[in-house]
C-alpha cells in the first residue's frame, strides 16, 4: 500500500475578486521508501500540494479531495489526531532554516521539543537522541551546536539541524520543500547528500519539491511535473529525460543549460507561466505549446496512466515519437 495517496486534491484561497484556485485536482501516490520529485515553475502548486498533506494551507483555504496517509484521510482528522500524525508520521524540511527556528531559543530546545513536547519522550532520552542525530548529520562540534542560537550558525549548519529534527522521529514521510535553495552551491550538495543518506537509512518516503530538474533526477525515484496547479506528467527520471511525453516537460528539459554543448542563447519556453486560477477549459499549457491544436482547448484533459508513468496531453499518442527526439525549438522553427 502507498504511504501517501493524493486523490483529486483541489485547493482555492479566498480573494476579494472571488476564490482563487491554486490546485486543480492533484493525484499522486508515494510508495514506501520511495522518493518522489515534484518539479515545476514557481506558483505551479508544488509547495501548496505539500501543505495540504501537512494541513498547513493558508487560513480560509478551501480544500477538496482526499489525502490518504497509510490509508487514513489526513483531511478528516480531529485536532488531537492531526497533532499525533504531525508528530509521528510526517516531517517537513522547509526552504529557509533560519525562519524555521525560533531565533530566541537554542538549537537543543528546537531538537528536543520535537521529541519531548510533540511525541512525549522524556527530556533526557530526547537530549541524547538529539546529540546522536547531530553527529549523524555531520556536525563536528555537537556541544557547541546544541548550545548555539540560530543566529550563531551558518545556513548549512542550520539546515542540517532541521534535517536532524525531521528524521528524529523516523517519520513515514518526509516533505522537503526546496531544502537547498537558500544555501550556497557547495553547501547544497553536502546537505542534499546528508538528507538522502538519512532518508535511505531509515527507509522513509519523501516528496521532494524543487524547480531543479537535475537535482530531482539525481535524488528521486520518480518525478512529477506540475504546471498551473496540476500534474502534467509523472515518470522515472531516466524515461523523463530520454522520452518526455508532455510538451511542457520537453521544453523544460530543453531550457536547461547543457554541461557539454555551448548554446549561444538558452532556449526559453515562450509566453509566461499561467496561474492555476487563470486556466480556462482544456489544456493549461495550450497557449504556450508549439504543438497545440484547436482541439487542445476543449474539455478536461485527463491524466492518462500507463504503467508507472502518466501524462496529461490531448495529443499524447501522436506526439510520443516526436517529443522523444525533436526539441521544442525545432518544432517552432
Amino acid at each position: 500500500m502507498s504511504v501517501l495517496e493524493l486523490d483529486d486534491v483541489r485547493l482555492a484561497v479566498p480573494h476579494p475578486s472571488g476564490d482563487r484556485t491554486l490546485l486543480r485536482g492533484v493525484s499522486l501516490s508515494v510508495a514506501p521508501g520511495e522518493a518522489l520529485g515534484l518539479v515545476g515553475e514557481s506558483g505551479s502548486g508544488k509547495s501548496m500540494t505539500l501543505r495540504t498533506v501537512l494541513r498547513t494551507e493558508p487560513r480560509g483555504a478551501h480544500v477538496a479531495g482526499r489525502v490518504l496517509l497509510d490509508g487514513r484521510d489526513v483531511r478528516g482528522l480531529g485536532p488531537a489526531e492531526l497533532r499525533r500524525v504531525r508528530a509521528e508520521s510526517l516531517a517537513m524540511i522547509s526552504q529557509d532554516p533560519r525562519a524555521a527556528l525560533n531565533p530566541l531559543l537554542r538549537v537543543s530546545r528546537f531538537l528536543v521539543e520535537g521529541l519531548c513536547d510533540a511525541r512525549g519522550d522524556d527530556e533526557r532520552t530526547a537530549t541524547r537522541r538529539a546529540r546522536d542525530l547531530l553527529a549523524q548529520v555531520g556536525i563536528a562540534d555537537v556541544d557547541r551546536c546544541m548550545n548555539s542560537y540560530p543566529h550563531q550558525l551558518s545556513g548549512g549548519m542550520l539546515q542540517r539541524v532541521v534535517i536532524a529534527a525531521a528524521v528524529a522521529g523516523s517519520p513515514r514521510l518526509l516533505l522537503a520543500d526546496e531544502p537547498t535553495t537558500a544555501l550556497d552551491v557547495t553547501t547544497q550538495s553536502e546537505v542534499m547528500a546528508i538528507l538522502d543518506e538519512q532518508r535511505r537509512e531509515r527507509g522513509m518516503s519523501m516528496i521532494f519539491v524543487t524547480h531543479d530538474l537535475e537535482l530531482a533526477s539525481a535524488v528521486c525515484d520518480r518525478i512529477a511535473v506540475m504546471y498551473a496547479g496540476e500534474i502534467v506528467e509523472i515518470s522515472t527520471p531516466e524515461r523523463l529525460h530520454a522520452a518526455p511525453r508532455h510538451p511542457y516537460t520537453r521544453l523544460l528539459l530543453d531550457s536547461r543549460p547543457s554541461l557539454t554543448a555551448r548554446a549561444p542563447v538558452l532556449p526559453v519556453i515562450p509566453g509566461r507561466p499561467v496561474a492555476a486560477y487563470e486556466v480556462g477549459g482544456g489544456c493549461a499549457f495550450a497557449g504556450r505549446c508549439p504543438w497545440s491544436e484547436p482541439g487542445c482547448t476543449d474539455g478536461e484533459i485527463p491524466l492518462v496512466r500507463d504503467g508507472d508513468r502518466a501524462v496529461r496531453c490531448a495529443r499524447e499518442e501522436e506526439l510520443a515519437g516526436e517529443l522523444a527526439h525533436a526539441t521544442g525549438t525545432e518544432a517552432t522553427a
Binding site: R86, E113, A118
Partner: peptide, 8 residues
Amino acid sequence: VALARGVP
C-alpha cells in the same frame, strides 16, 4: 513549523 511538528 512548530505546530506542523506536532508541538501542542
